[in-house]
Amino acid sequence: MENNPETNKPSAPPAAPNGCGAGQGSLPGRCGALAFPFVAMQENNPVRFSRMEALQTGTLFPGLDLPFKAAIQAKTQLKNTALVELMALDFAIDELGLYLVTHSQDQEALQLYWSYIKLAQEGRQKYQELYGPLLQTDLTPEDGYAWLKDPWPWDEGGNA
């Protein structure tokens, strides 16, 4: 089952023979070295949230969604503004980027990463036409040094 970045739907990986399931990962085998901290390795092509769900949860991977009791409440609904959509896309890119550091051979994840990068280029265009530059070096249709302009991200809500 392919994850289509356009439909933004979560994906399920093909069943792997030694698959551990979303909340588990692989250990070195029946035996491991003494006196060493082992963290189970997340498996290749893991199940993913949609981009918006990922941003609202704080991770792209249901396997890593481990909430605290004092905060198990209805998931926050973020507004679908141009900024929030870009935040969700950039977040998916950051998450996949970290995953790829320790899973650099996962071809499916790599393909998804590049497809998100391309989408993000359009997302930045769209945001910048409305609100001005994201990087100091971004060109915008504005006259004058648009980089200076309020709001800055910490001012009440920025442009969200």
């Binding site: 070195p28 070295a33 060493f36 901290p37 082992f38 963290v39 189970a40 390795m41 997340q42 941003l55 949860t57 704080g58 991770t59 991977f61 890593l64 969604d65 481990l66 909430p67 605290f68 905060a71 926050t76 998450e95 970290l98 995953y99 550091v101 320790t102 899973h103």
Partner: peptide, 27 residues
């Protein structure tokens, strides 16, 4: 406040996982 804090907390768990994986790769 809790909305933003929940997000930040979730990140710490993911970072823990990645550091653990880094140790495995190094080993």
């Amino acid at each position: 406040v809790n909305d933003a804090i929940k997000f930040l907390r979730a990140r710490e768990i993911v970072h823990f996982q990645r550091f653990g994986e880094g140790l495995r790769l190094a080993k």
